[in-house]
């Protein structure tokens, strides 16, 4: 087995002539170029701003359009529901409904009227002014 120690340790690569001499100057140029590339010109900023504004307006318009059409659909459905309701209510069912309501009202009135009548009689008996009554008679 060939040992690495037996191989002469030399650098087998080379560079173009005077390569290292101008390296620092080139490095500074690369940095300046890099900074220039990173500086975005005003026209580009303007273009990007315009694009963003157009995007916002478009999205607002689209959202408005879809929201409105949803609302329109909803109101149309309501109207449809009401007209369906009218179809289901016939005259007989309306009369029945009124009659039921009257029965309930009458029962209430009768019960409460009797109580009212008793209360009035009781009051008159207790607070009767007999002298004035006799004088009038």
């Amino acid at each position: 087995m060939k040992k690495l120690d037996n191989i002469e340790k030399t650098n087998p690569f080379k560079t173009p002539e005077a390569y290292f001499d101008k390296l620092s100057e080139r490095a500074l140029n690369s940095i300046k170029n890099d900074t220039e590339i990173k500086t975005i010109p005003f026209s580009k900023i303007l273009f990007r701003a315009a694009a963003i504004i157009i995007l916002v307006i478009t999205s607002i318009t689209v959202t408005y359009y879809f929201t409105n059409s949803e609302k329109e659909k909803e109101s149309k459905t309501n109207i449809a529901e009401i007209s369906n309701l009218e179809n289901y209510l016939d005259e007989a069912s309306i009369i029945n409904k009124i009659a039921e309501d009257s029965v309930v009202a009458n029962e209430y009135f009768e019960n409460n009227f009797n109580d009212f009548q008793n209360d009035t009689t009781e009051y008159l008996v207790e607070n009767m002014d007999y002298i004035s009554l006799l004088a009038e008679l």
Binding site: I7, T10, P12, F13
Partner: peptide
Amino acid sequence: AYFNGDEIQL
């Protein structure tokens, strides 16, 4: 062109 090693270096 920028390699000038001998056979063993290669």
